[in-house]
Amino acid sequence: MQPLLQTRGLTAFYGSTQALFGVDITVQAGGITALLGANGAGKTTTLRAICGMIRIAGEISFDGNSIRGMPTESIVRLGIAHVPDGRGTFTDLTVEENLRLGGYLRPSHPELAADMERVFGYFPVLKQRLRQQAGTLSGGEQQMLAISRALMLRPRLMLLDEPSFGLAPLIVQEIFRIMRRINEEEKVSMLLVEQNAKLALDLADHAFLIETGKVVVAGKAADMINDEGVRRAYLGY
């Protein structure tokens, strides 16, 4: 089966510092793939590279077509929704405006309203916060808003950059539970970047472990959880 997303020999630079040294990852359609690694390993950079936010060398294909060198706006139009690190919320705008922006590419009103209701099905709390300025939400609510905004795009692939970052464990569990529901009910594939390897491997079906800009281990998430060597060497638990 042809993978939904595939990168081949992805390299990237920040100025003169090389951050990626030939990253090869694949995301299967309908699946959840975890991208694991320590701080500074190149996880966020890989997501940015896929979205055309940095200059890269190598090949990226989505649904069999090359998306390399395309501007971010055009990549988004293909159905790739990125929930970036720091969440990328428009903090000065209201929750409702953030969601409307999420559906910017399909601005027909009945559709937008229906999509918002669908999103509230996952995150009911946002409905009570509609008129509130997004910057005043709690961290957990902001993460929910970020995921909801991405969902409004009706994406085929979601890139999630550390959705657990800075959140209390209970809220993280709730968000990860909802992410699984979204994956199943919306048929959205996910590429999940996480520092919390245990959490990510529980959710994902496949995983790639990267270290200093290279993939060092790849395989099924279940195998990785059970592999003592991998766990000791890279996952630290």
Partner: peptide, 12 residues
């Protein structure tokens, strides 16, 4: 307000 996020929702 936020050009990076704007691109991520498809705004040119």
């Amino acid at each position: 307000l936020n050009p990076t996020s704007a691109r991520l929702v498809g705004i040119r």
